[in-house]
Design a protein around this nucleic acid. Structure first.
Lengths: 249, 249
DNA sequence: ATATATTCTGCGTTTTATTGCAATTATTTG
DNA sequence: CAAATAATTGCAATAAAACGCAGAATATAT
C-alpha cells in the first residue's frame, strides 16, 4: 500500500467520522502504528488534519475557527484585566481598541454597569453587546482583515468629533524613550486619533511588549496616563516608565 | 475517546447551555471527574471557557458558536443563497444587511472574487473578512443588540453619501400590496437608507415571510428589483409579486 | 542493466502524556 | 460552624510518541 493511498484513506475517513484512532487505521491498513504516526505527522504538517494524542481529528469545517484560536499567555492577560477593571465606572464614556487583553477586560466588566463604549474593533463590539446597560457605538470604516478593526478616513472623522473619559489602548509596543509604536500605518493613524479623543489613556500591555519598538511611532510614552502590566507595580523594569510620569497598576 | 473530542463536546455543550456541571460531563462522557477537571483547566488556560467551582461557564457571547444545523430552516436558506450567488460579480460595490440568509450568501461567495461590500452587520463583516480580495466597509453607529447591526444617525449619514450597484436586503416582511415592512424603527430607517443608496435591490426571503406585514412600512414592494425565495420561480404564490414588476429567481 | 542514492517501513528502546485513584486541602452552603 | 461537595496534589499503571537504526522498496544516475 502506497503512502499516497494511505493518506487518501485517512483523509476520507476523517471527513466522514471527524476523528480517527491511530490504532484503528494501523489495523485496517495493515501497517505498523509508526507508519501511520508518520503519515499523520505529515498530514498535520501540511495542515490537512490535526494530530492529537491517540489519533487525529478533522480540522474544523467551520471557516470561522480561526476566531477561536488560542490566546497567547492568557493567564497574564487575565491578571492585567483584573487590575484594570477598576478603571471602569458607571456612566462614563470609553474608547476601547481590539487585542485579546482588552477583550479579556470586557469579559470582566460587572454585568449591570451602565456606560458607553466606542470601539473600532468588531470583536470588542460583539462582546460588549452582551451587557444590557452598555451602549456600544461601533466606529465605522474600512475593516482591516488582520486586526479586525475599522480604520481609514471615516473612522478618523468620527474620532475627531469625539471626547471620551478614558481609552483602553490595546496591544502596541512601548518604549520608555521612543514612545508608543506600531507596525501597521492604518492602525497608527487610528490610535493617534483615539488618543486625541480621550481625556485619559490607559494601556494594558504584557511586559514582553515593553521596551520594544516598531516601525511607526504613535505618540510619546507620556501620552499614556495609566500603564497596566502583569508585573507588580514596583517591579524594576517599570521604573523608567514611572519616571516618565506614568501611573503604574 | 480522545481528549480533543471531549474538549469539543464540552465547548459545544457550553455554547448551547452556557454552563455545565463537572459531574454531568464526567458522567456523560464516561470518564473520571479528574479527567474532566483537567480538561476544563486546559480550556480555561487557553481562554475558551471560564472554570468555576463545580463546572464551567461560557466565556462570552460567541457569535460563531451557533451550530449551522440549528439555524431556522437552514436548508432553504442555502437554496436561496445558491440562487442569489450569481448576482455577485467582480469589481462591483454591494450593500448587505444581516440575517442568516445573507450570511449564507456570503459563505457561498467565490473565494477570490474582488469587490466591495458595505454592511451595517457585525456578523456579515466578520464573514466577509475571510475573503482576501473583498474590501469590507463597516457602516458605523450605535449597535443594536438584538440584530447586531449598527443603526442611527451615523449610519444614515454615511449611507446618504453612498451609491452601490446592488444591495441584498435581508430578512424583512414582504406583502405584494402593503410593501416591505419591519418591526423595529431603527431598522426601518436603516433599510430605507440602504434602498436609497442602491441602484438595484435584491431581497433574499423565505416564503413564510411573504404576505406578512409588520408595524412600520419601509418601502413599496416594487422598490425590490429581484426577489429570491426557496420556491421555483413559477410558483403561484409569487405571481402577484411578478405582476408588480419584480424579477423572481 | 547495474550501481547508488533516497525514501519508506518496522522494531526495540526511551521518553512523554494521559488517566484514575487516594489522601489532603479548599469552598460552598445551610 | 459543620457537613457536603470540589479542588489539589502526588502517585502508579497504561498508552502513545519520539528516536535511532537497519533492512526493504523505490527512484535516479551512469
Amino acid at each position: 500500500m502506497l503512502k499516497e493511498e494511505r493518506h487518501r484513506h485517512i483523509l476520507s475517513e476523517l471527513s466522514i467520522r471527524n476523528r480517527i484512532l491511530l490504532t484503528d487505521i494501523a489495523d485496517k491498513l495493515e501497517v505498523s502504528e509508526d507508519t501511520i504516526r508518520r503519515d499523520l505527522k505529515e498530514l498535520h504538517d501540511v495542515g490537512k488534519l490535526k494530530k492529537v494524542h491517540g489519533g487525529a481529528v478533522a480540522k474544523s469545517f467551520n471557516p470561522f475557527s480561526f476566531h477561536q484560536e488560542e490566546i497567547y499567555d492568557h493567564p497574564n492577560k487575565v491578571l492585567i484585566a483584573r487590575k484594570a477593571i477598576h478603571l471602569i465606572k458607571e456612566n462614563q464614556a470609553y474608547l476601547i481598541t481590539g487585542g485579546t487583553t482588552n477583550l479579556e477586560l470586557i469579559s470582566l466588566i460587572p454585568p449591570d454597569i451602565a456606560c458607553t463604549f466606542f470601539t473600532p474593533s468588531l470583536q470588542a463590539a460583539m462582546r460588549l453587546l452582551q451587557f444590557p446597560n452598555i451602549e456600544t457605538i461601533l466606529i465605522g470604516g474600512k475593516v482591516s482583515p488582520d486586526a479586525q478593526i475599522t480604520t481609514g478616513g471615516e473612522a478618523l472623522k468620527l474620532l475627531s468629533r469625539l471626547r471620551v473619559d478614558l481609552c483602553f489602548l490595546g496591544t502596541g509596543h512601548l518604549d520608555a524613550e521612543f514612545g508608543i509604536s506600531e507596525f501597521d500605518w492604518d492602525v497608527v493613524e487610528l490610535k493617534q486619533a483615539i488618543i486625541a479623543a480621550s481625556r485619559k489613556v490607559a494601556s494594558l500591555t504584557l511586559s514582553v511588549k515593553l521596551n520594544s519598538i516598531q516601525r511607526y511611532k504613535i505618540a510619546e510614552i507620556n501620552s499614556i496616563d495609566t500603564l497596566v502590566t502583569e508585573l507588580p507595580a514596583n517591579h524594576e523594569s517599570l521604573e523608567k516608565f514611572k519616571s516618565k510620569g506614568l501611573h503604574i497598576l
